[in-house]
Amino acid sequence: MEHSPPPFFRRGPAPVVRLAFFASLSLALLVLDARFHYTEGLRRVLAIAAYPLQLAATAPLVLGERIAAYFSSQSALRADNAKLQARLLATAEDAQRYRAAAAEAERLRRLVGAAERIERRSIPAEIVYAGRDPYSLKVIVDKGTQQGVSAGNPVVDDAGVVGQVTRVYPFTAEVTLVTDKDYAIPVQVVRSGLRVVAFGGGSSGMLELRFIAPNAEIRPGDLLVTSGIDGTYPPGLPVATVANVELDAAHSFARVLCQPAAGVNRGRYLLVLSGERRLPPYPVEATSPSERRRDKAPRAPRKKDQRDTR
């Protein structure tokens, strides 16, 4: 302070004291949140307090969209309708075949006594707003625990895996996108069957396969789908297409960049797949029971903060 007030004006504790108090409070919160995850309750309460403001922020946009939709021209609607009809026909056949195949697979699985897969419930959700954090790629959707969303649920769109629910609040949920730097997803190369773990590439908007042997069966154009090994993701969902395989003599591993299949940064409507496959507990070698369902892919590095398989 450049000027110190006379002592007879009571102003409470000195600003420096207040600063020390609030700064240490913030630091304590940061440590509690980052290291121990003790603050989920507080976060939930605060998120509920912020929810009306978030709603107010998105309300004009939603209203504008509704008005625009109301005035959308007849011809555009008819063209859309025709296109959707064509797509429906195209997918109906697939759906029927899928149903028949699923029934057959179930029969066969029962024959061999395998655990029956539980059917997942899909919850349509809309992105209400993108996370205001330039360091992580997250979006907030308008469905929460009240609608049956729980942490760990995979999130897909019409083309493939978009991400995973990492935090749930009563009416909203936070989805971490597959391109987030801290994100890992077990995948499988469709062509060769090779199992690998894909990591988010951060702001580049790509996925990355690390620690791939230079002679591994992988080449540009290969489709990666979820392997279903960890039990979090249903198997067979498209995740990404291999875009580039870098072979550098200086490194012993190849670096593989992949383009996500889903419109990770486009689109507003997502599908949350709730329900989880129950897997038998991980064998005793695991360090702690909470770390079961770890991906068993070869050469998968052990991440220190594997949030997505909690």
Binding site: L27, L29, L30, D33, R43, S136, R167
Partner: peptide, 16 residues
């Protein structure tokens, strides 16, 4: 703190 919770970032960074 409200901003931190609303944005889903590490709790306390904007508070600090």
């Amino acid at each position: 703190l409200l901003i931190d919770a609303g944005n889903g970032v590490l709790l306390g960074q904007h508070a600090l």
